Simulated scan of single mutants.
Amino acid sequence: MDVLGVVTVVAVGLLVGVELAVAVFVNPMLDRLPGDAGLAARSDGARVLGRVMPFWYSGSVVLAVGWVVLAWGGAPAVPVLVAAVLLVVAVVASIALLVPINDRVKTWSAGDAPADWRAQVGRWDRLHHGRVALLVAAFALAAVGLLAA
C-alpha cells in the first residue's frame, strides 16, 4: 500500500506540475507573442497534450481509487477518498467544459481561426485555473494520505 501511495502522489504531483505550468507560465507567455504566433503554439499544445492528458488523468484516478480500496478503514482512506473525488470532478469538468474548447483550438491555424479565438482561449484559461485548483487540492490530500499511512 505504501508503494501505491507513493506512485499515486508522484503521478498526481507531476500532473499538477504540468497543469500549473501551463496555467501560470506557458499560456501567459504564448499570449504575449506578437500577432497570431501564440495561436499556433496553443494549437500545437492542444494537439500534443490532448493526446497525453486523458491517460494521465484516468491513470491518476485509477491509482487514487485503488489506494482508497486498499486503505479502507485506515488513516489514509478519508483524505485519499476526497482526493479521488476531486480528481473525478476535474475529469468531468475537463470533458464537459475544457475538451470542447481544446478540440476547436487544435484545429486552428493563423489563417482559419475564428475572430473570437482570443476570447475562447481566455475562457479555456479561466476554466483551467479552476481545474488546477482542484488538482492542487487533490494532490495535497493525497500527500496527507501518504503521511497518514
Score class of each variant (00 low, 15 high):
Asp125Pro: 00
Leu30Arg: 08
Ala46Leu: 13
Ala148Phe: 04
Ala96Leu: 11
Asp116Phe: 08
Leu146Glu: 09
Val24Phe: 08
Val22Pro: 02
Val16Asp: 03
Val18Leu: 14
Arg131Asn: 02
Val91Ala: 11
Val6Gly: 10
Val91Met: 12
Pro54Ile: 10
Val68Glu: 02
Ala83Asn: 03
Trp108Ala: 12
Gly17Ala: 08
Asp125Gln: 14
Ala113Trp: 05
Gly130Ala: 02
Ala37Glu: 13
Val9Ile: 10
Gly13Thr: 08
Leu14Arg: 06
Leu49Asp: 05
Leu135Gly: 10
Ser109His: 13
Trp56Asn: 11
Leu14Gln: 10
Val89Thr: 04
Leu81Arg: 03
Arg42Val: 11
Val10Gln: 06
Thr8Tyr: 07
Trp108Cys: 13
Val69Cys: 06
Phe139Arg: 03
Val88Thr: 01
Tyr57His: 15
Asp44Leu: 15
Ala83Tyr: 09
Leu20Asp: 00
Leu4Ser: 07
Ala40Ile: 13
Leu49Ser: 12
Asp2Lys: 07
Ala133Lys: 00
Val61Thr: 04
Trp72Asp: 05
Val69Phe: 05
Leu30Gly: 03
Leu146Cys: 08
Gly145Glu: 04
Val88Ser: 00
Trp124Gln: 07
Leu141Lys: 05
Arg118Tyr: 03
Leu147Ile: 05
Val18Ala: 14
Gly45Ile: 09
Asn27Ser: 07
Ile95Tyr: 07
Ala93Gly: 11
Trp72Gly: 09
Ser60Met: 08
Leu49Arg: 11
Val7Cys: 05
Gly73Trp: 06
Val144His: 00
Pro54Trp: 04
Pro28Asn: 06
Gln120Gly: 00
Val6Glu: 08
Val18Cys: 02
Leu98His: 14
Ala119Arg: 14
Val92Asp: 02
Asn102Ala: 11
Arg32Asn: 09
Ala84Phe: 00
Met53Gly: 06
Pro34Lys: 09
Leu127Thr: 02
Ala133Phe: 01
Gly45Val: 13
Ala64Met: 03
Leu134Arg: 00
Ser60Glu: 01
Val6Leu: 13
Ala138Asn: 06
Ala93His: 04
Leu135Phe: 12
Val7Gly: 05
Leu33Cys: 12
Gly111Asn: 14
